[in-house]
Nucleic acid binder design. Structure first.
Ligand SMILES: NC(=O)c1ccc[n+]([C@@H]2O[C@H](COP(=O)([O-])OP(=O)(O)OC[C@H]3O[C@@H](n4cnc5c(N)ncnc54)[C@H](O)[C@@H]3O)[C@@H](O)[C@H]2O)c1
Ligand SMILES: NC(=O)c1ccc[n+]([C@@H]2O[C@H](COP(=O)([O-])OP(=O)(O)OC[C@H]3O[C@@H](n4cnc5c(N)ncnc54)[C@H](O)[C@@H]3O)[C@@H](O)[C@H]2O)c1
Lengths: 209, 209
DNA sequence: ATCTTATTGTGATTAGAGGCACATGCGTGC
DNA sequence: GCACGCATGTGCCTCTAATCACAATAAGAT
């Protein structure tokens, strides 16, 4: 089981499952069937069972899944049982919103470094107390603070350069908000968050049906 | 051709192609091969040709695609040849960043209405001059201003309620930033933008490889 | 202890998307 | 005006992912 290649879509769904499970916990639900969970997540029940089957057996036949246990297990699979250290590059409108967002902290994502090229911003403190540093210190600071993930919130033109610096600083995972395709060497994972693409999808839908 | 079912992934890629084509125009490139475009977008050349083939023939054999023409055609396919009217609900950190974002305007997405439940915010003007209205005026204002897409930037607990109101106001497309699954009737398209899911993907990658 | 009921885990099946490879056809040069 | 080179458009194949359907099995009732 462990050695099968796991679809990327499965990982994405696992993330969704953790959310649904967290709301179930809030609602004091202790046991959930794949059917019910599937409804909450908008997927097929068999899909859930199969997704989980990649990693082992977590349910009880005839009963379902114990919510708290399953949440624990899925979080562990995803690597959410520990804290992750992030750096943000580009503390503009979007960057500030991200740093301020307290859900991330709750989930174990912590911003431990911030960078911006704007001389007016360097040295200033964010609401969280984080000091903004110049980009040329990225290498040293990221290594010092053991940054594991980099978040790019600069204009698109600089994104590739920033990515290179992050990689150079030993960062192996990048979340890119700039609307551009970033090249990274093997062993470095890049995820893009792209609002306009989503809007374009909606535009297409409204245009064509 | 026109009547085949078109994969969602194709639409997403078309959006990527428009970006690459726009940068090519900036670089004064007039003709591009599927091979070159594929490199820029990080996809397979045949994929590009196939994606375009769903909608017609746009290239010249032995030559490639005329950049400007192709951009025009792809934009038209996506419905980006016109302006779209958006409403934002929840003008917090993220909501403000979105409204302030000038790329959207450049692409033809225009925020024509803003809503927030916070009494301190109602009546205030955003940087764009847009006035913040209370949620109970959503129905009338959206209809008045002919809002076509709704953007949800409220905390997750309120997202479904907001979505219902938007649907009620005739909005047929919703971009949801709240980390929750939204139910909408047939004929209404919901797209989710979910940062934490992307972070979770990175966490999984760093944990498992 | 056995039967019933519910729901998992999974092999088989179906659907679909991506990639290959070649025939098609346009432009250029001779 | 003809031949050659080059990149498109597309049929076919492969591979992957999603769904179905059922056998395995746990809990509770009789
Ligand atoms: N704001 C949005 O809603 C939104 C939506 C979609 C995409 N994006 C993308 O996210 C990115 C940031 O958007 P924003 O609205 O925050 O823009 P912004 O202009 O408010 O902020 C950009 C920040 O990056 C900094 N910066 C510029 N060059 C830099 C460099 N080389 N190194 C470090 N920092 C640098 C600037 O000083 C500024 O603080 C852009 O690529 C934008 O296209 C934003
Ligand atoms: N900020 C981020 O980086 C980030 C990242 C991921 C997800 N999100 C999600 O985006 C959403 C907004 O995030 P944010 O950081 O802007 O939060 P925020 O708290 O800064 O803003 C939320 C806004 O919504 C308003 N609001 C609350 N209830 C409302 C209602 N019923 N009707 C209308 N408005 C209402 C609030 O008054 C506030 O202005 C949240 O769901 C959050 O989880 C944000």
């Amino acid at each position: 089981m462990k050695f099968l290649k796991i679809p990327a879509a499965t990982i994405t769904r696992l993330s969704l499952y953790t959310r649904a499970l967290e709301t179930l916990i809030k609602e004091q639900v202790t046991v959930v069937s794949s059917k019910r969970l599937a409804e909450l997540c908008g997927v097929n029940p068999a899909q859930i069972r199969k997704d989980l089957a990649y990693f082992g057996q977590f349910g009880v036949r005839g009963v379902g899944y114990y919510v708290k246990e399953l949440l624990f297990d899925v979080k562990k699979i995803l690597g959410l049982h520990r804290e992750w250290k992030l750096a943000i590059v580009g503390v503009g409108n979007l960057g500030c919103a991200l740093v301020a967002h307290e859900n991330f902290t709750r989930q174990g994502y912590r911003f431990v470094a911030a960078f911006d090229a704007d001389p007016m911003k360097i040295g200033r403190k964010l609401v969280t107390g984080l000091v903004i540093n110049p980009p040329n210190e990225m290498h040293n600071i990221c290594r010092d603070k053991q940054v594991e993930m980099g978040v790019i919130c600069t204009p698109a033109d600089f994104a590739q350069d920033i990515a290179n610096r992050l990689v150079d600083a030993g960062v192996k995972a990048i979340l890119n908000f700039a609307p551009t395709q970033i090249q990274a060497p093997d062993g470095v994972k890049v995820e893009n968050v792209d609002f306009s693409v989503k809007l374009d999808n909606l535009a297409y839908y409204l245009t064509t049906g």
